[in-house]
Amino acid sequence: MDKRKPTLIKLDVSDNEANLTLKVDADILDFRGHFTHFPLLPGVSQIDWALFYAVEHLNTPALFKGMEVIKFQEPILPDAEVTLSLSWDPAKEKLAFTYSSQKNGNRIVHSSGKMKLGE
Rank of each mutant, 00 (worst) to 15 (best):
residue 77 L to W: 14
residue 97 F to W: 05
residue 35 F to M: 01
residue 51 L to N: 06
residue 79 D to T: 03
residue 57 H to T: 01
residue 68 E to F: 14
residue 114 K to T: 11
residue 4 R to H: 15
residue 89 D to Q: 11
residue 101 S to H: 09
residue 51 L to K: 10
residue 57 H to C: 00
residue 70 I to N: 08
residue 69 V to C: 13
residue 50 A to Q: 05
residue 67 M to I: 11
residue 114 K to F: 13
residue 22 L to Y: 00
residue 105 G to W: 07
residue 44 V to Y: 00
residue 14 S to G: 07
residue 65 K to G: 05
residue 56 E to T: 05
residue 16 N to W: 06
residue 111 S to Y: 02
residue 113 G to S: 09
residue 96 A to T: 13
residue 75 P to G: 02
residue 53 Y to I: 03
residue 29 L to F: 09
residue 84 L to F: 06
residue 3 K to L: 02
residue 80 A to Q: 10
residue 112 S to R: 13
residue 54 A to H: 06
residue 32 R to C: 09
residue 10 K to A: 00
residue 64 F to K: 15
residue 118 G to M: 07
residue 44 V to C: 07
residue 41 L to Y: 05
residue 43 G to R: 04
residue 110 H to M: 06
residue 101 S to G: 07
residue 52 F to R: 12
residue 115 M to P: 15
residue 79 D to R: 01
residue 106 N to R: 15
residue 47 I to F: 07
residue 68 E to L: 13
residue 78 P to Y: 08
residue 81 E to A: 08
residue 84 L to I: 03
residue 81 E to W: 10
residue 31 F to Q: 05
residue 66 G to H: 10
residue 10 K to N: 01
residue 14 S to Y: 10
residue 75 P to R: 03
residue 49 W to I: 02
residue 30 D to H: 11
residue 24 V to P: 05
residue 53 Y to L: 02
residue 13 V to Y: 04
residue 90 P to V: 05
residue 65 K to N: 05
residue 54 A to R: 00
residue 11 L to I: 08
residue 39 P to C: 07
residue 101 S to M: 09
residue 96 A to R: 14
residue 108 I to M: 11
residue 26 A to P: 14
residue 76 I to R: 02
residue 62 A to W: 12
residue 100 S to T: 10
residue 29 L to W: 09
residue 15 D to E: 12
residue 65 K to I: 06
residue 23 K to P: 04
residue 93 E to G: 12
residue 13 V to S: 00
residue 97 F to K: 06
residue 10 K to D: 00
residue 98 T to A: 14
residue 46 Q to V: 01
residue 57 H to W: 01
residue 119 E to D: 15
residue 28 I to G: 00
residue 89 D to E: 04
residue 106 N to A: 14
residue 32 R to E: 14
residue 108 I to S: 01
residue 4 R to Y: 15
residue 14 S to E: 04
residue 108 I to Q: 10
residue 72 F to L: 11
residue 93 E to C: 14
residue 48 D to N: 15
residue 84 L to P: 02
residue 81 E to N: 07
residue 71 K to V: 02
residue 71 K to F: 11
residue 92 K to Y: 09
residue 96 A to M: 14
residue 38 F to T: 07
residue 68 E to A: 12
residue 27 D to S: 04
residue 116 K to V: 10
residue 50 A to C: 05
residue 86 L to Q: 03
residue 79 D to Q: 00
residue 103 K to C: 14
residue 51 L to Y: 06
residue 61 P to M: 01
residue 19 N to G: 10
residue 59 N to G: 12
residue 98 T to S: 11
residue 96 A to V: 13
residue 73 Q to M: 12
residue 70 I to C: 02
residue 11 L to D: 11
residue 102 Q to F: 13
residue 115 M to E: 08
residue 46 Q to M: 10
residue 20 L to E: 00
residue 102 Q to L: 08
residue 76 I to N: 03
residue 34 H to R: 08
residue 22 L to K: 02
residue 20 L to W: 03
residue 116 K to E: 15
residue 14 S to L: 07
residue 8 L to G: 04
residue 85 S to H: 11
residue 52 F to M: 11
residue 109 V to A: 08
residue 102 Q to V: 14
residue 8 L to I: 01
residue 32 R to H: 14
residue 100 S to K: 13
residue 103 K to H: 08
residue 38 F to V: 01
residue 5 K to Q: 09
residue 118 G to K: 12
residue 16 N to L: 02
residue 11 L to W: 01
residue 82 V to D: 04
residue 33 G to Y: 03
residue 38 F to D: 03
residue 100 S to V: 11
residue 107 R to E: 15
residue 96 A to C: 15
residue 67 M to T: 13
